[in-house]
């Protein structure tokens, strides 16, 4: 089966979730990648390692304007005859995949967490991570957008051929005025390790101990909703049912009670560590490891232990 995978190659390096999408495509069929911008031929040829046979690159435009990317991918669908089109369900995928779905009349499975089942249905998270649903696509072509961190990236092949491509992307009607990228922060949705804290930390002036641990681990920081709502932390750190949904390998939660709306956004994490003074806190039921103790003592102690571990490994 012919599979087309769109990746965003506009960043400094090709992101892990793009490699996941290529890998995922390879599990379904013969993969052609389509992308745009100015990534070097050699970095694109590397996608062969992750399962791409061919890479089409449109060098006539840069960036991730959703209308331009939609037109380009639609042109590539036509020229490759692909029956399955794959995106990462990241911010670009969320804007482009639905547009493409209408443009080429292909059913969209948004946020797939696994390869298609033998009956053709595809698993997605529903009810904010409280359950799974199995989606059937009723059109000839299908679009799958893969939830980041759902599959393990593997090296499966060699080099891909790279071809210049004209995707008829047209003009952008959106002008970018300003881009703010906070220095040194690890973007939360992609982070493999996350340290998070809640109201138990008492006030924004106490976040130093959270940041210290995050820095030592190379983790991103997150928080509960009331913490973001009261302005202790920025909105983009708010995780949960009405914030960001994340699924890191490790989620460390300090001073968070574990309300159902909070759990909904984090229970896809592989391993959960909970630090709370109250042994009855509901979060312990969702945790793999629990520490009943005061975050003000436990967090610095954990930071020290990580330091020691790093020094001896």
């Amino acid at each position: 089966m012919s599979v087309l995978v769109y990746i965003n190659s506009n960043g400094e390096k090709i992101a892990k979730n793009a490699l996941e999408a290529v890998n995922y495509g390879k599990k379904i069929g013969e993969v052609t990648v389509v992308t745009n911008g100015k990534a070097s031929d050699s970095s694109l040829a590397e996608l062969g390692k992750y399962g791409a046979s061919k890479v089409l690159i449109d060098r006539s435009f840069e960036g991730i304007d959703e209308q331009q990317v939609t037109r380009m991918v639609a042109t590539a669908v036509e020229s490759t005859g692909a029956e399955t089109i794959i995106f990462s369900n990241d911010l670009v995928g969320k804007a482009v995949a639905p547009r493409l779905s209408v443009k080429i009349n292909a059913g969209l499975v948004a946020g797939a967490t696994a390869v298609p089942e033998s009956n053709g249905t595809i698993a997605v998270n529903v009810f904010s991570g409280k359950a799974f649903g199995y989606v059937k696509v009723n059109t000839d072509k299908r679009i799958i957008s893969l939830l980041p961190n759902s599959i393990q990236v593997e090296e499966v092949g060699g080099e891909a051929s790279v071809e210049e491509f004209s995707g008829n992307a047209g003009e952008s009607v959106i002008t970018i005025k300003d881009t703010k990228m906070p220095e040194g922060d690890i973007p939360l949705p992609e982070a493999e390790l996350v340290v998070s804290a809640g109201r138990g930390l008492k006030g924004p002036e106490n976040w130093g101990i959270v940041e210290d641990l995050a820095k030592e681990l190379g983790a991103a920081t997150a928080c509960s909703r009331p913490v973001a709502d009261t302005g202790w932390r920025p909105h983009h750190e708010h995780v949960g049912q009405t914030g960001v949904a994340i699924r890191p390998n490790l989620y460390i939660a300090a001073g968070i009670s574990g309300a159902i709306q909070h759990l909904a956004g984090v229970n896809g994490s592989k391993v959960i560590v909970v630090i709370n003074t109250d042994e009855e806190a509901p979060f312990f039921k969702a945790a793999d490891y629990g520490v009943v103790g005061d975050a003000f003592e436990v967090l610095p102690r954990l930071t020290e232990a990580v330091k020691k571990f790093k020094a001896s490994n």
Partner: peptide, 14 residues
Amino acid sequence: KNTSFEKYALPAPK
């Protein structure tokens, strides 16, 4: 309707 939900499942308990 381009897609339909055929089945649901709850995650395995921790």
